[in-house]
Write a protein that binds this DNA or RNA. Sequence first.
DNA 1: CGCCGAGTTGAACTGAATCAAGAAACGTGG
DNA 2: CCACGTTTCTTGATTCAGTTCAACTCGGCG
Lengths: 184, 184
Amino acid sequence: MQSEQYQVKELIKQIIINFEEILTPAEYKRGEVVHHSSNTCNKIFIVKSGILRSYYFQNDTDITAHFAMDYSIVGAVDSIMKKEKSIYSIEALEDSEVLVMNYDEMETFLIKNPAYEKLARQVSQFLYLDLVERFEGMMFLTAKERYQHLITRYPKITQQVSLGHIASYLGITQETLSRVRKLT
Amino acid sequence: MQSEQYQVKELIKQIIINFEEILTPAEYKRGEVVHHSSNTCNKIFIVKSGILRSYYFQNDTDITAHFAMDYSIVGAVDSIMKKEKSIYSIEALEDSEVLVMNYDEMETFLIKNPAYEKLARQVSQFLYLDLVERFEGMMFLTAKERYQHLITRYPKITQQVSLGHIASYLGITQETLSRVRKLT
DNA sequence: CGCCGAGTTGAACTGAATCAAGAAACGTGG
DNA sequence: CCACGTTTCTTGATTCAGTTCAACTCGGCG
């Protein structure tokens, strides 16, 4: 687990080095909406510092899909893969330093540099494993266990993100999270 | 959704045509264990007919991770990606016709034929979207809704697979599934 | 000072799990 | 082809984690 995390970070750093020519640096202010849902968005955001959050609405409730910080990545997966309008929005929760990659440019880049295909594939595989882990968390862990798991993995997250955002990310209500973390 | 399903099937058929030289046909009998957990297994199984099931144990309970039939694929994801022993086993629930691909051979094949990288990536992206959909089902849908969603997508599955396997796939108990489907 | 968003607390409610028995279906051997 | 044991499925009673709704607290900040 820990080592796995480490590997992903290393892979992202490899990406930053090798894909440099198609990466555009950007800075976002706290509260800034980086991508607004219902637009198509084929960009991938690599977060160097700060924190981005992707979210969507499910019956008028704001649901956090993903947090990205410290050399992890976020994007409007649906839009990238299906070339459609996205249900996700992405915002900066803190002032953030980001590298932006256009997915189409990446495809072109990879055609010219097939040696990097493997690197791209490895990243997507780790994203997949991450999701498997989260999925299994949803299936088998209690609210409390999910929260503990999260803060073990991202100890600083409670300082950066509001309770409600964390709760929706974990698939529980804010009230439950409030109760659950009190007795930790 | 429906069209998305369709696309994946088409992609798999493309794979069957273009990756022919690294695909080995196999037939498995009903009940046959195709891969046993705690071995490493870097094989991907493309199911042409019949049905395979991957599963693992969580506190001595048999949990279905995935079903594969009708040009969908299954493999021990963890083992393939991490090159470790797998927690998954894979068995045939019916007599099945399968094409087996060795992941390492695929990597070599793709180095020689980088033109097919995109196809491989597309497949893995659809697997990812599938998992996102299942994840959201776990978060937002009731037991009943999850079941209905499953039989809409795979109408024949109740004839092929036992209740218990379906229940664990949906993340509910067999008793709940029994009750829930009675009043449908 | 009073408002406002974020977090907490309480009480009632509910979907699903658990535990425990039965009923049906299934296949294997006599 | 029937009888028996084994799985598979159903049904009931109880319990529990988490939701919902509503009120309340706290710490800024105009």
